[in-house]
Design a protein around this nucleic acid. Sequence first.
DNA 1: GTCTAATCGAGACGGTACGTCTCGTCTTCAC
DNA 2: GTGAAGACGAGACGTACCGTCTCGATTAGAC
Lengths: 210, 210, 210, 210
Amino acid sequence: MQSRTPAGRTGRPRNAAADTAILAATREALVELGWSKLTLGDVATRAGVAKTTLYRRWAGKNELVVDAVAELFDELELPDRGSLAADIEGVVLQFAAILARPEAKSGLMAVVAESTRDDALRERIRASIVERQIRLVLEGRERAQCRGELPPEPDPAEAARTVDLIFDVVAGAVVHRTLVSGKPADEDWVRGFTRVLLLGLTAAEPTAAE
Amino acid sequence: MQSRTPAGRTGRPRNAAADTAILAATREALVELGWSKLTLGDVATRAGVAKTTLYRRWAGKNELVVDAVAELFDELELPDRGSLAADIEGVVLQFAAILARPEAKSGLMAVVAESTRDDALRERIRASIVERQIRLVLEGRERAQCRGELPPEPDPAEAARTVDLIFDVVAGAVVHRTLVSGKPADEDWVRGFTRVLLLGLTAAEPTAAE
Amino acid sequence: MQSRTPAGRTGRPRNAAADTAILAATREALVELGWSKLTLGDVATRAGVAKTTLYRRWAGKNELVVDAVAELFDELELPDRGSLAADIEGVVLQFAAILARPEAKSGLMAVVAESTRDDALRERIRASIVERQIRLVLEGRERAQCRGELPPEPDPAEAARTVDLIFDVVAGAVVHRTLVSGKPADEDWVRGFTRVLLLGLTAAEPTAAE
Amino acid sequence: MQSRTPAGRTGRPRNAAADTAILAATREALVELGWSKLTLGDVATRAGVAKTTLYRRWAGKNELVVDAVAELFDELELPDRGSLAADIEGVVLQFAAILARPEAKSGLMAVVAESTRDDALRERIRASIVERQIRLVLEGRERAQCRGELPPEPDPAEAARTVDLIFDVVAGAVVHRTLVSGKPADEDWVRGFTRVLLLGLTAAEPTAAE
DNA sequence: GTCTAATCGAGACGGTACGTCTCGTCTTCAC
DNA sequence: GTGAAGACGAGACGTACCGTCTCGATTAGAC
């Protein structure tokens, strides 16, 4: 979100309800039309707002869609299910459920694609979508360490690398399963995936004697 | 590719060189402009071809970009490096190298995003890009089984599920690392990733004694 | 003309100067290119206006050309030259002078040809070009009746028929001379034509004894 | 027409039936589509002929339409009806009947309009359409002179001027009536027109008493 | 209560690309 | 050499959105 009524300012204040309406209209349009056929004029009409209003608040289609999609990920949580495996399965299922929604499918990959040529956009995605997911990984690891399921990390740099790797593997696998393979990331799949992931992370390195 | 001079046909035959020129021009435009600013008129101009010629051979921007990007993956191979780990590392590095190229970055995710609303497009992607990659996974497993690094698969259905899972994990992780996290999938990362993957696939299930 | 800023309306008002510029550009293009090679894109460029602006105000090439040509006929007048013959000669010469201009030559017949398949276009031509000319005929007859050169009309229906006939003969002859025969309707010709016309209209019917 | 099978030539001779089929197809297309929407590709298809064949025989749309329309005027004749007035009425009615046909309406004015910028086209129209009509005027005058209805012409130059004038007045009036005024040149109208024309041509100049 | 200034809706504006159409030419094979 | 078939380069078509602009009408807080 970027609209702030800058407190000590004169003039007519912005209509706060408009932001909500615009983001909802954007998601609606994503569902009906997909990213490439979504037009800002159409979003403005759906939101009952003038095009000018929309452009006053967002720089363009990409920024708008990032904000609209980011709200979908607000509901991601990490309820304590008693074991690391169950925690992972739970959060991956939540993540898969969000990705299965057409507004996420249509919008997310498109803005990621756009972000390969627009650093500001990549940063916006990182801050409003990715950051939250990374935090869930950190939180989950901490909880597992409390439980004793994972050893404490001696080397902070190595720890950060591992978190990154886990995040890329989890998010990447779910996204690929959903969007490229076109198959649902359902409970069976998530269970299998989690088993491989956890084994990979916790199994002892095979010794030379194998 | 879709242009065939249908053998026993009258009329002037299509210029075969045009296909090549158009696909190369498409990749060039992807590098310079990215997917969203790429226009078919511009591609036609770059290829030294009329817009009509382009539309006669491809249905639209998405199909054209899929074919142009697919050619990038033709170079993927699976040389025998002596061990399963080395084989995986090799092919993942190749895959990462292709994904690091701007024409792949710009184009691939965009068409995947589009394919969420276009089944024909998804199928085209599957046939011309994904299929080849799946085959590499199968080939690698077979080779590892010959070497005795992997046990033979008793249950074919389970085997297929595992291949799918591996494929989603590998491709997903590399793509996510490259495009979302925006960091290079370099040798270090690939080595770490391969270690986790192989452990996850081969480690014994933790026994009850855990 | 069709563009009016409808008085009590919201939104940015139309640029009135654009109409003038577009019609002038249309005549310029008619002179240089002729009707069939005139393109609306070119007219827009000449007028320093976007193609959209042009399409927002005119339905198509035909309507635009009718309006552009109609303005040429605005200068037609019926100055009092003292006699019916002189009045006719004067107005016919004016008419011929307009028709001799290349923008009229190129445009007028073309839209008439188009109007054979488009009733709305025929009506537009009638209202903006023909109507004014008919009025001149009426005006001239009235003046001649005041002078006593023509008898008052007893039968209104017959009078209307005669006006129509005169109009078709005058306009038709000048147009045919100019466009089909390709010869100038100069003073000599106009004098000869007027003599025949006036004699035809005023001479006594040859009696049976002939 | 311009296609000749050049007598002493080798190779496959041209298909003579094609000319006929093409001209008929052109008239059919003129009726259905009008001049501006008529395309040579469509005419070729209707005639069951390749576009190449058509272009080998005609230089373009204008030339083709002139030839197609010219054939309509082949049926104009000047049967002897016993008096100059009746002869004129007869031939004017024939002319009006041809002009009333949609293929003539659509095509004739359009090519005349085009001819204002193409001298070769104007000459082609003159030779294949106008010439024949002029000859009818000459023939009619000769017949009337034989009958004693018209005096012999003392001055050949003046005679030529008068023929031109008559032709412009007759053809122009009928065309204007039919295409611009959009009313039929029926028997009533033709009778009125002929009366005015003949009076104009034969009435004695008003004397000095004027 | 003005005054002031940013907001709102509406919609016209100069652009750009779209995907289609027709042009007139060219290339191939069959007769 | 002619003919049908159809691909080709060229370029106009009319439409759709873009992002900007100009309006008149609100709508607050500052005076």
